[in-house]
Simulated scan of single mutants.
Amino acid sequence: MKLFSFLLMGGVKFLSHCFYRGRPNWLSEEQEAALGEVRLVVFLNHTSLFEPLFIRFAPWSFVWNIAHKVIVPGADVTLERPLAGRVLKVLLPGVIPITRKADESWEHFLSLVNGDVITAILPEGRMKRRNGLDKDGKPMSVRGGVADILERLEQGKLLFVYSGGLHHIQCPGERLPRVFRTLTANLEILDIADYKRQIEQRHESGFKAKVMGDMNHRLDAFVP
């Protein structure tokens, strides 16, 4: 299954190179050479189920690691969809269904987080619609699950992927993507231990509130 996942990711990477333009913009001194140490991927500005197109920016070695080591929480309602859910399960064998509540499904996911896997998360927890709000008309913001993950990681690197958004390619509710458009993303690699030390210096009370405050700032400041 993991080999098939790698081949499928490779196919997505190939098609993305064929039909889309763009290159990543690095915000950090550490770049591709440090990807082998990444233990947490935080993807900010969730706008479309076609975000696997961003894999075009990843070197093949990181694609291999993602196929073999990644775990990612996925909304159970999305994974139960006949087409989208099946594709996501095949593309990402490490996707773990959760209910979006602080219940046993989230605790099960957290029990799998460790230094031997790559944990990935879209910390807003829902997709931004064309009007800039979620499907219920509420403002987009980061939720606290990413802080729970960080509490379980002491070493390795943290990769931020700041998406420029995909509404020009596919909006929630649309079935097919538009082609020959440009993908934009800012990337940043930080040391997890250093990041957590910096977070502790923030003025908010409580680790989770500090992480959410920082992530919301990054969502506003670093998304292209």
Rank of each mutant, 00 (worst) to 15 (best):
M1E: 13
L3K: 14
L3N: 15
F4G: 14
L7W: 11
L7N: 13
M9I: 15
G10Q: 13
G11H: 11
G11A: 12
S16F: 04
S16I: 13
C18K: 13
Y20G: 10
R21D: 14
R21Y: 15
R21M: 14
R23Q: 15
L27Q: 11
E29I: 13
A34E: 12
A34D: 05
G36N: 03
L40K: 00
V42I: 13
H46W: 03
T47Y: 04
S48D: 04
F50Q: 09
F50W: 11
F54A: 13
I55F: 06
F57E: 09
F57T: 05
F57G: 05
A58Q: 04
S61T: 08
F62T: 06
K69F: 03
V72R: 02
G74N: 09
V77E: 00
T78V: 04
L79F: 03
R81S: 07
P82L: 01
A84P: 06
G85Y: 02
G85A: 00
L88Y: 10
L88A: 11
K89N: 09
K89W: 10
L92T: 07
P93I: 06
V95H: 04
T99D: 08
R100D: 08
K101N: 03
E104L: 07
F109A: 07
S111P: 00
S111D: 03
V113C: 01
N114F: 00
G115Q: 00
I118D: 09
T119I: 00
L122I: 12
L122A: 14
R126L: 12
R130D: 08
G132K: 10
L133Q: 08
D134P: 10
D134V: 06
D134Q: 02
S141N: 07
A147T: 02
I149W: 04
I149C: 02
E151V: 00
L153I: 06
K157H: 08
L158S: 10
L159A: 10
L159D: 09
L159R: 01
V161K: 01
G164W: 14
G164K: 15
H167P: 14
H168C: 10
P172C: 11
G173N: 11
L176Y: 15
R178T: 09
F180A: 00
L183A: 11
L187S: 04
D191A: 06
D191Y: 02
A193I: 01
R197D: 02
Q198I: 11
Q198A: 12
Q198W: 12
Q201C: 11
R202M: 08
S205Y: 13
A209C: 09
M212C: 12
G213K: 06
D214L: 08
D214G: 01
N216W: 08
D220M: 07
F222W: 07
F222S: 12
V223D: 08
